[in-house]
Design a protein around this nucleic acid. Sequence first.
DNA 1: TTTTGCGTAAACATATTGTTAAGATGGACG
DNA 2: CGTCCATCTTAACAATATGTTTACGCAAAA
Lengths: 225, 225
Amino acid sequence: MDDNSKKILIADDEPDILEILSYNLNKEGYETMTAKDGDEALHKTKLFRPDLIMLDVMMPHKNGMEVCKVLRAQPSYQGTLIVFLTALSDETSHIKGLEYGADDFISKPVSPKILISKVNALFRRVQKPDDKVLQAGNIIIDSVKFVVMVEGREIILAKKEFELLHLLATKPGRVFLRNEILSQIWGTEVIVGDRTIDVHIRKIRQKLGIDCITTVKGVGYKLVV
Amino acid sequence: MDDNSKKILIADDEPDILEILSYNLNKEGYETMTAKDGDEALHKTKLFRPDLIMLDVMMPHKNGMEVCKVLRAQPSYQGTLIVFLTALSDETSHIKGLEYGADDFISKPVSPKILISKVNALFRRVQKPDDKVLQAGNIIIDSVKFVVMVEGREIILAKKEFELLHLLATKPGRVFLRNEILSQIWGTEVIVGDRTIDVHIRKIRQKLGIDCITTVKGVGYKLVV
DNA sequence: TTTTGCGTAAACATATTGTTAAGATGGACG
DNA sequence: CGTCCATCTTAACAATATGTTTACGCAAAA
């Protein structure tokens, strides 16, 4: 954080937006680069490995959602922060964006103050070490004791089940793509069938007794609070 | 170094303060969690049972003094350490804080050095002199006499068995990974087979006669209370 | 309608641990 | 110095929990 050599890629088809954003981020000490469409964004992401990517929702050659989906499906970019640039009114984009694994939204027209505070907050959040005790709603996940507490009951999960629930609980409400889950829990070398995740999800639902994991068809799973 | 794993709750409405404090405390080996106002502090205190609570005097939804007063009124939190975060000049807070049962004060802006030394000092002060005798549930482990008491019976364990049980009893409920157990009891140079741990666990279970050690498959063992 | 994606249960495969007994080691002691 | 004895470790096998696949059903989307 003191060495603000964080790299930020900004993708938007309007040159004015690119300029305003990079001007303000540069002033704050961030290193920026720009792309004018989705394909260029993907290409430059591979090249420069930015720490944060700001994607305009509406862009030529792959819109923001598509770029996000492509990136999130690859293990190497799952730690990368992704922020969407949306029109102020656009509510549906927020919902869809979360499903695809966005970390935040910035609405246009952009206020420099909000921009900076959001970006700073995101980086702050990321570098925090993983908590040993997670809480999401009335579920407490204790990695130290290796138990899950639900409504006072103490529930024992098998290892994979525990890991899966723990992953979802790191970002409650956010959807995790099936690819993301696979690479986080099984790693990239191991290859397991599609039904495997379902079965584990089912066991978790069964053992917890409450309906806390929601299926987002065609996308993945998320923990609801 | 010394494996503290003491839990510290930090309550402040300024994110920057939370970040600075938890960063420094984490680096020192403490486990931290945060709250952004008084109500959240109380809630998380009940949930996570921290060993020390750092309260900003000025917070939304119950200020530090109020939180302190609530906690001190309950017997279960009288052993909990409470520290106030105050502005440097604020003399009256010190006096009032002492009346409410504060254990120390840390003035903002916070110096990491002072922070760490104060926190360490507080824990040193409350540390029990007799950790030669551990108790977990109805099991008493006496490192001086080298015996274990279970339900009045005096049981003699072999050296390795004793060390293993003692290790588990230092943190009842916590899961110890097999690797952890190996490095703690056998050290890093010695290499023993996987079954060795199992056999010792078995002997302990057999000798104690009660089922106090739980297997967490794929992870390790823990002592239940 | 056809296709796609997910839920479910049972069968199957695997990994991890429990158990037992048999060497290996080293100290105590005559 | 040799014997006894407790402890530690290992190997072999049994038992079980866990993980994965298969097969099939259902519902919603194309």
